[in-house]
Simulated assay, not measured.
Amino acid sequence: MSDREQDPGEKQRIPVTGRFYILPDDLHEDFIRASGPGGQNVNKVSTAVQLRFDLDGNTTLPEDVKTRAAALAGSRLTQGGEIVLQADRFRTRERNREDALNRLLELLRKAFEKPKPRKATRPTLASKKRRLDTKKKRGAVKKMRGRGAAID
Rank of each mutant, 00 (worst) to 15 (best):
T60G: 03
A100N: 06
F20H: 15
K114W: 02
D88A: 09
F90I: 05
D3W: 05
K114I: 08
G146A: 04
R91Q: 03
P117V: 08
R13F: 05
P115R: 00
G36M: 02
T78M: 04
T121Q: 06
D54Q: 10
T17S: 07
R145D: 08
P15N: 05
H28T: 14
K116D: 15
G139F: 02
K114G: 04
L61M: 08
F31L: 07
A71L: 02
R97Y: 00
G9V: 13
L23C: 04
A126Q: 15
K136V: 08
F53V: 03
N41W: 14
L104W: 02
A73I: 08
L104R: 00
S127G: 12
A120C: 01
D152T: 11
Q50N: 03
D26W: 07
D133T: 15
E10H: 11
K119P: 00
T134W: 11
G148H: 14
Q6P: 01
L105R: 03
L101T: 12
P117Q: 09
A120T: 09
R103M: 00
L132N: 10
N58Q: 07
K143E: 15
P62C: 04
T59H: 07
R103A: 10
G148W: 10
D64I: 02
M1T: 13
Y21C: 06
L101I: 04
R118F: 10
V45S: 00
R97P: 04
L85W: 10
G139E: 14
L85G: 00
L51R: 09
F20A: 15
R33M: 13
N102H: 08
D64S: 14
A120N: 12
K135L: 05
S75L: 09
R52Y: 01
K110M: 15
